[in-house]
Design a protein around this nucleic acid. Sequence first.
DNA 1: CGCATGATTTGATCTGCATCAAGGAAATTA
DNA 2: TAATTTCCTTGATGCAGATCAAATCATGCG
Lengths: 245, 245
Amino acid sequence: MRFTAKIRPKCSECPIRHRAVCARCDDGELAMLEGIKVYRSFAAGDPILRRGDPLTYVASVVHGVATLNKTMEDGRTQMVGMLFPSDFIGRPGRVEIDFDVVAVTDVTLCCFQRRPFERLIATTPHIAQRLLEISLDELDAARDWMVLLGRKTAREKIATFVHMLVRRQSVVGSLGDGAPLILPLTRDEIASYIGLTLETVSRQLNAMKKEGILRFTDRRRFEIADLTALHIATGDDEEGAPAYC
Amino acid sequence: MRFTAKIRPKCSECPIRHRAVCARCDDGELAMLEGIKVYRSFAAGDPILRRGDPLTYVASVVHGVATLNKTMEDGRTQMVGMLFPSDFIGRPGRVEIDFDVVAVTDVTLCCFQRRPFERLIATTPHIAQRLLEISLDELDAARDWMVLLGRKTAREKIATFVHMLVRRQSVVGSLGDGAPLILPLTRDEIASYIGLTLETVSRQLNAMKKEGILRFTDRRRFEIADLTALHIATGDDEEGAPAYC
DNA sequence: CGCATGATTTGATCTGCATCAAGGAAATTA
DNA sequence: TAATTTCCTTGATGCAGATCAAATCATGCG
């Protein structure tokens, strides 16, 4: 169930104003973006874009979480990205995308028609610069994820995934031991993201519960009981804010 | 053994002129780039940049092949990219890189000091646009590689890797059955790129030789005896120019 | 409420690839 | 040309995680 809102919330009050593609815009540039933007909402489970769809618009995630999924001929799937608020969907200069974008929670997007948006980035350097920055950050994150997929053990994969959630969900908010977190994905979806099966995900998650690293209040809600142990379990070296944050 | 050439070959005669970061530049913009560029050469095996190095310059690959490598605390490594002529190294706006860049063949780079280059992209939209395009292409390629690492079998991984080589090495040139190709990486390096061990790489490569899909003239030189079979072995669907090309 | 449906857990077994081990072939150096 | 080193092949064995199979739990619905 998707709808296009008639209203256009003010950019100046937007929760992602300082992190999204518009982050660097001055008032004039923001006004131009504001002129072509449209909000769209998607319910949890809805497809946002399907592979091969004409890419008529690009967008920023305002609320909620979406995933990018690739599917092989025979049905095997690999999630290739998770989008949180301020992340960008679509790419100027391309007419279609080659993966599916799915809303895993209720999602609100701030959409721009691709053509007008392309014209805008050709003329307003601040948007193009920010978009380049965002793309390069995503590229770094993708490369970190390649290490996870290619070299990490099941346990390290789970720990890294949870650690990533901690960082992304507490961009603002009290991090540290004891923060309440939400698992936006099912076991199956997690498995798809980290290159495992749902059974292995379940087993590893429960193992970390028994070890006292995680504490579940619910199947979807949990807290980090021991952040240090979690970090050690990721197999990554010393702090140093990995790119997938 | 690395040296910085005193000479600056003319951009207008550059083999990557129409594909590199300068592809969209007009004569004036090209002149500005030409003013700050310096060629550097590296011998096969040389490190080009080390993790944590200050990123004093960015560059385009002119000749040769380089790899991007990530290393975990305990020594496990994952190659996260292969750079061919016209590919770009480094990112404006970041002071250091978090992986190693290594020349796997003799390599020539066209280097730009990072600061002047950043100033250039802030003012010449054609460079920024092309850089965005290149980055987004790399992001697509990284995502395709995530599918390979997370979901493909050893055989599919090898086939996909070889298929990628075919495409990248015959950007210009007679593709199709029977084109002579070079394996720029050792078995160990291939293993690092596709998330396997060198033994498995060796076995799969020999299996494809026995099946008549590949024909080796040498350990490093081979031809595709059956391109269709190779493509089927990748596990990818119908043609459709994957992003890692 | 009782049932249906989908998500999760848990157990048993299997297997693809890693790991361990040992030669052989090429390239490099002396 | 021998000696060294690096790269590659091939075989034997082991194991992490996949696959197969059943409960159990949760949630929505009539």
